[in-house]
Design a protein around this nucleic acid. Structure first.
Lengths: 130, 130
DNA sequence: CCTACTGTACAGTGTATGTGTACAGTAAAC
DNA sequence: GTTTACTGTACACATACACTGTACAGTAGG
């Protein structure tokens, strides 16, 4: 069921592969495209799809299991579980502000026009609970 | 002149210290609060202010010099230079979209309400060339 | 010259990341 | 029950990265 949700990572990126996998899957989990009960591909299957070692995928699955998204059981694969959201904290919102500004500054330094970044931000903002 | 522009970093963060310094300074550079001609504090001065080793600051300065923001000369300190923006690329905008979605998903997973993230995105979007 | 500053270079240490290999749990075929 | 073919797990190893300690080299003013 989850097999058609293709995930892409960039092996040349400075961002570690396992973190890219976590980030990509978390987008699907938060948005509900990967809902409770869904089976994730096995670590070896996803590893060959992405071109990494299966232990790298296992590390990503473990990270998401620690966050409460996955039920990871020896011999039986990885399953998405229902998860109650933790309480929000002011620190997290401040962190979001900092990282968002840093991200925007990095892209503008690379030549991205501010207008494009603004419209992209609006697009993504509207994707959140549409 | 630049000494009052305080920079804060989180030594407990998973983000490397030198990258936090680069990100923080780049926000000031892109926004123009650090303009051409400004002198940056010496690597040792900023290092003691932030609580890191001066070589860590030096690495950050070198990164920004490679990006074309700083003129870094042996024995004479670090100075902000004028810099013509590089050409934008479609890849950079796609990267921005991916990283922005990943950032939003991470914060929502931590419990941040979508509405707050949206308003914060609008705030930051309006800060870009106001 | 000398002193006091500046950035630079490089080796050493600890941690993070990714891989290879062996292991252990599960379920279905037989 | 045993076998087979899958599942995730554990740990040692290699490499890269982040950070520090220390020594060095350039610059400016006394």
């Amino acid at each position: 069921m989850a097999d058609d949700l293709t995930l892409r990572i960039d092996l040349d990126s400075a961002v570690p592969a396992y973190r890219q996998i976590v980030d990509g899957l978390r987008i699907l989990l938060v948005s509900g495209r990967l809902a409770a009960g869904a089976e994730l591909p096995s670590v070896r299957r996803m590893a060959t799809d992405l071109g990494v070692h299966f232990n790298t995928v296992a590390e990503a699955y473990r990270t998401l299991a620690d966050e409460g998204w996955l039920d990871l059981r020896h011999g039986r694969g990885a399953r998405v579980v229902s998860r109650d959201a933790p309480a929000a904290s002011r620190e997290h919102l401040e962190e979001f502000g900092h990282r968002l500004r840093a991200l925007a500054a990095e892209m503008m330094a690379k030549g991205a026009p501010a207008a494009k970044l603004r419209s992209l931000m609006r697009t993504v903002a509207e994707e959140l609970e549409p």
